[in-house]
Nucleic acid binder design. Sequence first.
DNA 1: AAAAAAC
Length: 510
Amino acid sequence: MTKFSDLNLNPKVLKAVEEAGYETPTPIQAGAIPPALAGRDVLGIAQTGTGKTASFTLPMITLLHRGRARARMPRSLVLCPTRELAAQVAENFDIYAKHTKLTKALLIGGVSFKEQDILIDKGVDVLIATPGRLLDHFERGKLLLTGVQIMVVDEADRMLDMGFIPDIERIFGLTPFTRQTLFFSATMASEIERITNTFLSNPERIEVARQASASETIAQGVVVFKPSRKDREGSEKRSILRGLIEREGADCRNGIIFCNRKVDVDVVAKSMKKYGYDAAPIHGDLEQSQRTRTLDGFRDGSLRFLVASDVAARGLDIPNVSHVFNYDVPSHAEDYVHRIGRTGRAGREGRAMMISVPRDEKNLDAIENLIQTQIPRIANPLKGDATAPEAEATPEAETPKPTRTRTRSRNRPAASTPAPAPEEAVEQTEATPAQAEPRQEDAAAAPAPETAEPPAEPQKDSAQRGASNRSRGSSNRGRSRRDERDEPVVGMGDDVPSFIAQSFEERMVG
DNA sequence: AAAAAAC
């Protein structure tokens, strides 16, 4: 098997890679690095989580390590669709360039120009940017792109979705014709095809092979429910969400909760906090400093739940997410794939649960059609009936998860439950006049965790599931969660389920 | 129909 040491990377880069603990490149890295080092254009067709970032940063650093930057004339440029993604590429660059003298600047919106200006004036080797802020600098006459030797376009299909293609074309036009171009996209929409035909010259095309089916590591489930009243939909969905989280118990180490709208991100995050959960919102209307802080907290484990818009659906490298909750059914089927792709990474087991109301039926169909799988229907933790009598738990069905540490007693949740205080307590301790939460929520919530039906395993392959249950063993009460996750991780990227590795068209066709 | 990205 190919090793990083076989790829002719600069020794200083190789050293940093080894220090980071990587030995074996992922397929996209093994495929893209050699032609990139040979100076060729590269067209990489790869989803997030495949190790894409290193497949362009490592050759870039190797190619640029000689020579130095002139004032206002960066030697290379990386374009990303979102600020967080750009920041992430910058972090990667810092890791792999740490033994070199190369410099970088991160040009993103939402932060002051001043520091960015100072860096550009001094001269940087690598510019990592979102298109808007880059063009802003250019129009102010602060920046010359005529010295760009290597240009990278990351997540091009998302740039297309976001209407950035004209900007990208313009930026291409500002760079020299002789530049080397590394272009990455998850899919090859016709517009993307057109761009690559125009701006890439005889590229080496690398398409990440679809993964073996064994990498199906995401257990999926959907709660299909009908709100008892239209105006209660929101509050009932929020109590279902809490019920799902409670049902997962300690297995739910952390999670991302996706909503379709920014307002709902705010409402859900506020509600979660009210009920004692450690949660924070992230979406594009929040201040950049807050976005950064929230994401950092989630990454380092100090924040348990991230309530997010699709700003966090793609590309962001957030390892170790045990759960993804789709509070809303995404209206673009591909977004579902991106959202749940935040869990079950690197061959680890992940769980993805969704809440669907009658209005979502069409979108749910489209998702199942896309992934060519029926998403298992799982029990509504509220039993679909907010007025159901309390304490109707059915112990005989309490089988499939022997290792659960969560409490199912009808009494108060035990101390081992890391979750929130019972709703009533919160209700009493909080003055609620100014809160956005409707009163009905409390009524709908009352029977929540305790009366939850046993978790119908939102599972796929029962054999696989059984194996992982065994590996947990009932004795793992005292084991650290880290131990459970100690499966070998190959390369610098993460394994992904097979359908994610397919192109959009492939998935549509089936 | 919404989210993201420039002020």
